[in-house]
Design a protein around this nucleic acid. Structure first.
Lengths: 127, 127
DNA sequence: GTCACTGCAAACATTTTGCATGCTA
DNA sequence: TAGCATGCAAAATGTTTGCAGTGAC
């Protein structure tokens, strides 16, 4: 897979995404960048985010509303603990679902069972 | 919460949703119903599905594409084991995440931590 | 110099909403 | 009969795409 070219827009998207405390949608990122004085087109933001996700640089997550949000992400398997109040996201690297997944696989006759899990609550600052 | 009225459209939505082997989006359900000769408006399907989800009669799940799909669902806490090939969904009632969730809550200083988990794989018939 | 990336606008898809009418309770 | 549900069409979102021009390599 050929990596994307290093354009000015890509730099800005990466920088802003790296600073963001919470996952951002293309729309939000677009507004952010424009507000910061960075000239960029909405379509470019969409294309960049899509590219970053394909390269594995960013995590693509679908919100309950159906909007798609992105977040720079350390590689490797992990889950998210999300504050419903402020949107803050903490990564949970210690995964305890693999064993259960294997169990379900054999019990239900499935194979290659992957899993996705998400935790929601209220964080200390908001609590 | 006042339950919805028993209209002809509601009956049809419920019936079709009950027969469906996989979760259906409003669009899909709309096409299905029309194909079956049931006169119904798209907006009505959207409103019915939304109502059913609020009443807890149907499960609302967001696809990776961002589309929202619905499925009649037994009440109570449970998770889904989904076949990536045929879309078949099996319910998993035996939940082993509560303890982990509590653990994460105290470790990260969160409270009221709920969780959502989904398993994906290939089922026996498709495997 | 080539070809990927960008910007813009138009097209698309999904979902929501306003309003007059019909039907359930 | 009162008021929720429906149908239709318009509008609001969120996202993708076509095409000409620009810039990275």
């Amino acid at each position: 897979m050929t990596p994307m070219r290093a354009t000015r827009q890509r730099e800005h998207v990466l920088e802003r995404l790296g600073q963001a405390p919470t996952p951002l949608s293309a729309q939000e990122l677009f507004v952010d960048l424009r507000a910061a004085g960075t000239p960029v087109a909405l379509a470019t933001v969409y294309r960049q985010l899509q590219g970053l996700a394909e390269e594995g640089v960013a995590d693509r997550l679908v919100r309950d509303t159906g909007e798609v949000a992105f977040r720079l992400c350390a590689s490797g398997h992990h889950h998210h603990l999300i504050c419903d109040s402020c949107g803050r996201v903490e990564e949970v690297r210690d995964c305890r679902l693999d064993r259960w997944a294997s169990h379900l696989a054999s019990e239900h006759g499935f194979r290659d069972v992957a899993h996705a899990a998400e935790f929601h609550g209220t964080c200390q600052d908001c609590g």
